[in-house]
Design a protein around this nucleic acid. Structure first.
Length: 685
RNA sequence: GGCUAUGUAGCUCAGUUGGUUAGAGCGUCGCACUCAUAAUGCGAAGGUCGGUGGUUCGAAUCCACCCAUAGCCA
C-alpha cells in the first residue's frame, strides 16, 4: 500500500447562514462533499473536511434584535441545531466552527492587512440609504418601494420582480425601510473596496487552469467580458461582524469573512490535532496538498473571483478546484412552503432515515451543475428497490442458510472465483467515478453488480439443493459467494451509506473495511445472525413529512448567503379572510401590555408563562413562544394583548388573554410591539 | 432585456467524435420461483428523442429560429 503516496486533501462545503435551519436543499451539498471526503479516507488518503456557521451580517443582527436577544445568543442557538442536524445526517466534519470566532477574526484581519499593504484596498465615499429611526444603513433588500419603470408596488431596492428592471434604491418611488417603515434618507459614507480588477490576469489564468467545471469557466468568461468591478467590502456600524482594523466604525462585509471561515475552521482543527496550517494554506502548499471547495452554483461568483483573488493577493495558495452543484427541486418544482416541499433536515429526520436521502441524492448527482429533482414517488421506489430489494436482499437471502445449517460459518473455499473477480475488478472503475464526483454512475454500476449477484443466487438455487443432505457443501459455498459479493458491494457503497456499511461489517464480523479490503474473499469465517439492515420506506412517511412541513415551517428559510426573507407570494399562500364589519372588529379589546415577568413552564416545551401589566391589572397569560424567545429577553417588553378573551383553564393554570404575534410557529415567530411612548393599558384600534 | 444551462418511454435518467430496428432502472402487464424485509429471476408492452426549418447520403446528436423550465446579471 505504500507504493502510492497518500494524498493530503482539505475539502469544504459552503457555510450555512446562521439565521435559519438546515433544509434539504442545503443537504445536497453536504452529502455530496461528505461522500467525497469519506471516499478519500477509505482510499487511504489524508482528508479533512471542515465547515462552519456563517454568523455575521445585517440579517443576523436584525433577527436577534427582533427576538430580543444578543446576536451571539442567536448564532449559538442556531449552531447547536446545525451541528445536530449534520451529525444526524452522518455528515462527518472534522471540524465545524463559526465565522464569529477568534481564528476567523485573526485571518480576516491578516488577509485585510496584507491586501492593504499590497495596495489592493481603496476608499471611496458612496451614497446610501439610511434609516434614521433605526440608525442603520439599509442594504438594498431592506428597502421597498414602487418600481420606477413599471409602477409595481412593494418591490425591493435592487430590482423589480414584476418587470425585472434593475436600479438603485434611490430610484425607487416612495421608498420605505422594511425594518421601521420609515422613509429612508440619503447619507454619504466612506467604504472600502477590494481592487478586483488588479487580479484579472491572474484570475483568467486560474479560471482556465483546470480548476473549474467547463460550464463555470464559461460563466467566468462572461464576467471577464463584462469587466471586473471592485468589491465593496465594508459596512457601517451598527453591524454584526468584525471591525476593520484602523477604523472606528467600519466592519467587514459578511461575504469578506465568510470564506475565510474555511481557514478559521481548519486552523481550529490544526490546533486540535497538531497539523501544520501552512501545509494546506501557505503559498508553498500548492502541489503539496490539495484544497477543494464544494459550493452551490449561486455563489460561484464569490468563490471563483473574489476568493482566489483575495487568497492570491494575501500570499496564500489558491484552491485546486471549486466544484459547483445545482439546486434541488421537489417534484419538479422549486421547494415551496405551501406545498409542504420546503423540508427541514429535522422534519425529514423525524419520519425518515438519513441514509435514504444520502442514497437518493448520490444516485442522482453527477459532476455537472444541473439541478437535481427529488421526486417523492421516485424516491420511495428507488430506495426500496435498490437498497432493500437488491443490495441488502443479497445478504438477507444467504444468511439464513449459513446461520441455520453451518453454525454461522462461511465455506472454506470460494466456488465462483470468476464471478467474485468480476466484482473486485470494478474497484478502480468505481473509484474513478467517485473521484470525478459522478456518483450517479457509480451507483448505477454498483446496482448492476447487485443484479448480477441476485441472478447468480437465483441460478444456483441453494433452497433446492438444501433439500438434499449430500449437497450441503454446495449450499454453503453458494451462500458464501453471495455474502462475499455483498461484502464487496458494501465497501463500494460505504461512502454513501456509512451506517449501513458499519451494520453490515458487524453482521459479517469484520473490522472497519477500507477500499482494498474486499479484494480477498472472506472464507471459513464466522458471521453473526442477520438482522434487517434497512427497512422499506412507507409512502405514508413521506406524506407525514410533507404534512409536517406545511404546518411548522415559518418564513425563516434562507440559505447559505445572507438575504432578507422573501415576502412575495405570501398572500397567495395564505389569502386574506372574508370581510367583516367594523362592529365585528369592535368586539376585540386589544390593549398594550408590559411583560412584568416571564418564565418557562415545566412540562411544556412550547409555552412561556407571562405576567402582563395591563395598566392597573396583572394578568397571567400562557403563550406558545418558547422556541422563539428566551424568557429573560421578554421582561419589560411591551406587547399587544387581546384583553377580553374568555379566560381558559390550561393544564398549567388559567390563561387570561393572548399576546399577538405573527409567524407560523416554532422559532418562526415574532411578537408585535407598539412604538415607544405607548403605555400599558392603552387601547389598540 | 442580455447571457448560461436544461427539455429523450408513466417516473428518474444514460446516450461517446452525427451512422444499422433509440438504451437502463423504477413503475405497469404476463410467467416462474419461494432462500429472502411480498424481496428475486425471465419476458412483454411503452418513445414521430420540446417545436419548426436547414446542413448532410444519413441527426436525439451540427446550425438557425421559436416554445417551456431553471439560474446568473456582482
Amino acid at each position: 500500500m505504500d507504493a502510492v503516496m497518500a494524498r493530503r486533501i482539505l475539502v469544504t462545503s459552503a457555510l450555512p447562514y446562521a439565521n435559519g435551519p438546515i433544509h434539504l436543499g442545503h443537504l445536497v451539498e453536504y452529502i455530496q462533499t461528505d461522500i467525497w471526503a469519506r471516499f478519500q479516507r477509505l482510499r487511504g488518503n489524508e482528508c479533512y473536511y471542515v465547515c462552519a456557521d456563517d454568523a455575521h451580517g445585517t440579517p443576523i443582527m436584525l433577527k436577534a434584535r427582533e427576538q430580543g436577544v444578543e446576536p451571539e445568543q442567536l448564532i449559538e442557538r442556531m449552531a447547536e441545531h446545525h451541528r445536530q442536524d449534520f451529525a444526524d445526517f452522518l455528515i462527518g466534519f472534522d471540524c465545524y466552527h463559526s465565522t464569529h470566532s477568534a481564528e476567523n477574526q485573526h485571518y480576516a484581519e491578516l488577509i485585510y492587512r496584507r491586501l492593504e499593504d499590497g495596495g489592493y484596498i481603496e476608499r471611496h465615499t458612496i451614497e446610501q440609504l439610511y434609516d434614521p429611526s433605526e440608525g442603520i444603513f439599509l442594504p438594498d433588500r431592506y428597502i421597498k418601494g414602487t418600481c420606477p419603470r413599471c409602477g409595481a408596488a412593494e418591490q425591493y431596492g435592487d430590482s423589480c420582480e414584476a418587470c425585472s428592471a434593475t436600479y438603485t434604491p434611490a430610484e425607487l418611488v416612495g421608498p420605505v425601510s422594511v425594518i421601521s417603515g420609515e422613509r429612508p434618507v440619503t447619507r454619504q459614507s466612506e467604504h472600502y473596496f477590494f481592487r478586483l480588477r488588479d487580479f484579472e490576469a491572474m484570475l483568467r489564468d486560474w479560471a482556465h487552469g483546470g480548476h473549474l467545471q467547463p460550464e463555470v469557466a464559461n460563466k467566468l468568461d462572461e464576467w471577464f467580458e463584462a469587466g471586473l468591478r471592485d468589491w465593496d467590502i465594508s459596512r457601517d456600524a451598527p453591524y454584526f461582524g468584525f471591525r476593520i482594523p484602523g477604523t472606528e466604525a467600519k466592519y467587514f462585509y459578511v461575504w469578506l469573512d465568510a470564506p475565510i471561515g474555511y481557514m478559521a475552521s481548519f486552523r481550529r482543527l490544526a490546533d486540535e490535532r497538531g497539523l501544520e496550517f501552512d501545509a494546506f494554506w501557505g503559498a508553498e502548499a500548492a502541489g503539496q496538498s490539495e484544497l477543494y471547495h464544494f459550493i452551490g452554483k449561486d455563489i460561484a461568483y464569490f468563490h471563483t473571483l473574489f476568493w482566489p483573488a483575495m487568497l492570491h493577493g494575501a500570499g496564500f495558495r489558491t484552491p485546486d478546484a471549486v466544484f459547483c452543484h445545482g439546486f434541488m427541486t421537489v417534484n419538479g418544482q422549486k421547494m415551496s412552503k405551501s406545498r409542504g416541499t420546503f423540508i427541514t433536515a429535522r422534519t425529514y429526520l423525524e419520519h425518515l432515515d438519513a441514509e435514504s436521502l444520502r442514497y437518493y441524492i448520490a444516485a442522482k448527482l453527477g459532476p455537472g451543475v444541473e439541478d437535481i429533482d427529488l421526486s417523492f414517488d421516485d424516491f420511495v421506489q428507488r430506495v426500496n428497490a435498490d437498497v432493500v430489494g437488491k443490495l441488502v436482499n443479497i445478504a438477507s437471502r444467504c444468511a439464513g442458510f449459513i446461520t441455520k445449517r453451518f453454525e454461522g460459518r462461511l465455506a472454506p473455499r470460494l466456488s465462483a472465483p470468476e464471478l467474485f473477480r468480476e466484482f473486485t475488478a470494478q474497484s478502480e472503475r468505481i473509484a474513478e467515478l467517485y473521484e470525478g464526483r459522478d456518483y450517479a454512475r457509480a451507483v448505477r454500476e454498483l446496482m448492476d453488480l447487485a443484479d448480477r449477484a441476485n441472478q447468480y443466487i437465483d441460478a444456483e438455487k441453494p433452497w433446492e439443493l438444501a433439500k438434499d443432505p449430500e449437497r450441503a457443501a454446495a449450499v454453503q459455498e453458494i451462500c458464501t459467494v453471495g455474502l462475499n459479493l455483498f461484502r464487496v458491494l458494501i465497501v463500494y457503497i460505504k461512502p454513501i451509506m456509512p451506517q449501513l456499511a458499519a451494520d453490515a461489517e458487524a453482521f459479517l464480523n469484520i473490522p472497519d473495511q477500507e477500499w482494498g479490503d474486499a479484494q480477498a474473499p472472506l472464507l471459513d469465517h464466522p458471521i453473526h445472525r442477520f438482522k434487517p439492515l434497512k427497512t422499506r420506506i412507507d409512502p405514508q412517511q413521506v406524506e407525514a413529512v410533507v404534512e409536517a412541513s406545511k404546518e411548522t415551517l415559518g418564513g425563516d428559510t434562507q440559505g447559505e448567503h445572507p438575504m432578507p426573507e422573501q415576502t412575495g407570494g405570501r398572500l397567495a399562500e395564505d389569502p386574506i379572510d372574508p370581510q367583516i364589519a367594523i362592529d365585528d372588529f369592535a368586539k376585540l379589546d386589544l390593549r398594550v401590555a408590559e411583560i412584568r415577568h416571564a418564565e418557562t413552564v415545566e412540562g411544556a416545551d412550547k409555552l412561556l408563562r407571562l405576567e402582563l401589566d395591563l395598566g392597573g391589572e396583572t394578568r397571567q397569560v400562557f403563550a406558545g413562544i418558547r422556541q422563539a424567545y428566551a424568557p429573560e429577553a421578554l421582561i419589560g417588553r411591551r406587547v399587544a394583548c387581546l384583553a377580553n378573551l374568555k379566560p381558559r383553564k390550561m393544564r398549567f393554570g388559567v390563561s387570561e388573554g393572548m399576546v399577538l404575534a405573527t409567524g407560523s410557529g416554532g422559532e418562526a415567530l415574532w411578537l408585535l410591539s407598539p412604538d415607544d411612548g405607548a403605555e400599558p393599558g392603552m387601547r389598540i384600534r
